[in-house]
Design a protein around this nucleic acid. Structure first.
Length: 766
DNA sequence: CAGTGAGCGAGCTTCCGCTTGACTT
């Protein structure tokens, strides 16, 4: 018999807490939720006032059995799930599954894992809060209703295996709408004039960089202005010096960690969470799924200590940040190092990098503001009302900047930090050069995984534990795709004035170059439009906020949860029924025009195997012709010309020894087919429309050379190959891993057979 | 791994939010 059993959600937390509690306490974890709505069917009895049908999922049976056993052996049971809506529901499900009395079951919570906090919690148990539990049930059931009633409508009206949900559908909508803003964006250019002045006639003297207060709409105007500049007199007309401060960013939450790890380390959202999980399990950081910027008193004190000894008193400023995020539940601390005096850790490269980021962010948040001095100098022209402005910023005291500076999403922020030379009001200046450069306006930026998480968080949609999975879901469904784009070269005009003469040159820049951005796919746009047409309420950006308000009321006992669900469900279900009655399917069809020779209609739409272009109709005597769209073409934007081009492939390059060589574009990009084998074209080098036979042979030979290097040994039916994860065995299209420490070069055929035999056996037995 | 687009139809797909592993060809 154990005196006391404490149940928490996370096993890592259980381990830590057990240490604080001593031998009278046993601490085990539930690994999150232990019960959920039935997997099959809706799992809700709508006619019986939305009665939920809960079951223990297959993968939870083992944990639940262990919990039951432990509970039967304990005198007192303390349920210490997290202090939020979900945690309260977990507590209630635990009580139900373990057959505990709701009136006597001790519910405790702690906000930080310290001895004090835990002892205080143990001294102040309460009962399970049924209002909070009911608000969770309402949340859970509403999400199930939305997801499981709309998704089948999509299967009927759009395509099988699609999905819709309160969170994912809004995420897709954000990306689709942003893409359309980018389509309709027209870049405009103007001329930005910058000057390099010197402070006296001596050409070697100090320089001052300044920008004209006005931009010029075209080359002609810019040219006219530069001519004016060539014989203008320049005078320093004003100097303002403004002191300012900069403050550190708050400690990390899940969302801000994902953003910064992407900006500074290039991690995907999922990668950040995997690495953070590792750090958490190793006891190196606090919990990584949190919406709170709060630091424990202990962490504040420790940070101060570290800062005092590393940087000195004047760098320290203890701060507690208020969490501003909508709907934050703050069941945990901010993400911070478990031991702040460890500025580095052992681990792999990614773990070290992420830890370093977390350490710096946490420490910086407890450091003094940076003191800056911003100087603005205005320069008058004696023949034009245009003013030049030079700005410079000097850091007077670095404060937190000594450790850490948050990055921004702005990609090409022109921040030329200039040093301002000593100038006085009324002083004449002389130009070295004045340059008018053509600048294009940029469309709004596409979302990255991390900036999408930021946006969702701002809208109060999704939770720290679901950001990464949501981003994965919308990619797995094919709604959006994370891609790079090379961009297109664009020429920029530059006019320069030097020694009284204006010369014109040009340079090129890449417009629309993208790295790791989220692009909507056809099916994502079709589903989005379908939802906008039929379920505008659900995909409204305010939908979550509105239902969250009601969940809050339920939690406060001011609203009945079944009533709330009823009010939502009745009109919602009517919409579902009405939508199902509609006859037409949504295919995203567009008529692009007619074939220039045959006059047949050319259309694009979503077909059985993806987006397809079609020439002609089925009701005609002639069979229609089909061609799949290329990877980066969209139904919404493809032109007639581009569509017609698709029918030029596959094409024959001619025959070689009676074997035909064919070039086409397949699922994995452009390819050459020759003697029944496929060879990929080189990305960005070869074009399938213009490829010659000669070049094709070069590609084929190169591929054959590479394949030779891939083979370590060839025993006929068994081969030892070099793969992505190192050497491996292959036989009959089956691949086998090599045992650790095997020298692949020295394997004999007998060795290989043994490995295969052993592997097959272990597969059968499992 | 690189094509496919006739039509019928059984049986399947799906949500969000808590938690970790198991598994990488």
């Amino acid at each position: 018999m154990i005196e006391n059993l404490v149940i928490v959600e996370s096993p890592a937390k259980a381990k830590t807490i057990e240490k604080f509690l001593g031998k009278d306490f046993r601490v085990i974890s539930s690994f999150g939720h232990i019960r959920d709505l039935a997997k099959k069917n809706l799992g809700i009895n709508i006619g019986k006032d939305f009665e939920p049908d809960y079951e223990i999922p297959k993968e939870k049976v083992k944990v639940v059995n262990e919990l039951r056993k432990a509970a039967s052996e304990a005198k007192n049971i303390w349920i210490a799930s997290d202090e939020d809506r979900e945690g309260e529901a977990i507590a209630w499900h635990l009580a139900g599954v373990l057959k505990l009395d709701l009136d006597t079951t001790k519910r405790i919570v702690f906000h930080e894992i310290t001895k004090d906090a835990i002892s205080t919690a143990i001294e102040n148990p309460r009962r399970i809060d049924m209002n909070l539990v009911n608000s969770q049930q309402a949340r859970r059931i509403l999400d199930r209703l939305v997801g499981f009633e709309i998704s089948p409508v999509l299967w009927k009206k759009v395509q099988p295996a699609l999905s819709a949900g309160r969170v994912q559908s809004v995420a897709v909508k954000l990306i689709v709408e942003r893409e359309r803003e980018i389509f309709s964006f027209k870049a405009e250019s103007s001329y930005r004039v910058t000057a390099v002045f010197r402070i006296d006639t001596n050409t070697a003297s100090a320089v001052l960089r300044a920008e004209a207060s006005k931009r010029f709409p075209d080359e002609k105007e810019a040219h006219k202005f530069l001519e004016l500049c060539s014989y203008a007199g320049y005078t320093v007309s004003g100097i303002t010096v403004k002191p300012g401060t900069r403050s550190p960013a708050p400690p990390f939450t899940t969302s801000t960690l994902q953003q910064e790890a992407f900006r500074k380390l290039g991690f995907s959202v999922a990668q950040t969470m995997t690495v953070a999980q590792k750090l958490y399990e190793a006891g190196k950081i606090t919990y990584m799924r949190t919406d709170s910027t709060n630091l424990s008193k202990l962490a504040l004190a420790k940070s101060r200590e570290v800062i005092m000894s590393e940087f000195g008193e004047k760098y320290s400023k203890t701060r507690q940040f208020k969490t501003k995020t909508a709907g934050a539940q703050e069941a945990h601390e901010a993400i911070r190092p478990a031991y702040l005096d460890n500025s580095t850790i052992t681990g792999n490269q990614n773990e070290k990098k992420l830890y370093d980021l977390i350490w710096k962010r946490t420490i910086a948040s407890q450091m003094a503001d940076a003191q800056v001095e911003k100087t603005t100098i205005s320069i008058d022209m004696n023949n034009s009302p245009v003013i030049f402005n030079a700005t410079g910023e000097v850091i007077k005291f670095d404060g937190f900047l000594k450790v850490y500076m948050e990055s921004s999403d702005q990609e090409n922020a022109d921040d030329e930090k200039a040093v301002i030379p000593p100038v006085k009001k009324g002083m004449p200046l002389y130009y070295n050069s004045i340059t008018a450069s053509q600048k294009y306006t940029s469309p709004p930026p596409r979302y990255t995984e991390a900036s999408l998480v930021k946006k969702l968080e701002e809208l109060g949609i999704g939770r720290p534990s679901t950001y990464a999975p949501t981003i994965s879901t919308i990619q797995n469904r094919g709604y959006v795709s994370r891609e790079d784009r090379p961009g297109e070269k664009r020429s920029l005009k530059i006019l320069s004035l030097e020694k009284g003469k204006v010369t014109s040159t040009s340079k090129s820049e890449l417009a629309g170059k993208e790295k790791s951005k989220l692009f909507p796919q056809d099916i994502g746009m079709i589903v989005n439009d379908f939802l906008m047409e039929n379920f505008s309420v659900i995909v409204d950006y305010n939908f979550t906020a509105e239902v969250e308000e009601q969940f809050d009321e339920i939690a406060l006992g001011k609203l009945k949860w079944t009533g709330m669900l009823h009010n939502f469900y009745v009109p919602f279900h009517t919409t579902v029924e009405k939508t199902l009655e509609k006859k037409d399917r949504k295919t995203g069809v567009r008529v692009l025009g007619n074939h220039p020779e045959t006059g047949e209609p050319v259309t694009v739409r979503m077909g059985r195997f993806g987006p397809v272009a079609q020439i002609g109709n089925t009701d005609n005597d002639n069979k229609p012709r089909f061609a799949s769209l290329a990877k980066n073409q969209l139904l919404e934007t493809i032109t007639l010309e581009e569509a017609l081009n698709l029918f030029r492939l596959p094409r024959s390059l001619g025959k070689n020894d009676s074997d035909e060589m064919v070039v086409g574009i397949g699922k994995f990009g452009p390819y050459i087919r020759f003697k029944g084998k496929f060879f990929s074209l080189k990305k960005g080098v070869d074009d399938p429309y213009t490829l010659t036979m000669e070049r094709a042979f070069e590609i084929i030979n190169e591929k054959n050379e590479d394949d030779k290097k891939k083979v370590i040994s060839d025993f006929g039916d068994i081969r030892v190959l070099n793969g992505r994860y190192g050497p491996y065995l292959t036989k009959d299209k089956q691949n086998y891993r090599l045992p650790k420490g095997t020298d692949a070069e020295k394997l004999t055929k007998e060795d290989c057979n043994k490995i295969i035999e052993k592997n097959d056996k272990s597969k059968k037995s499992s």
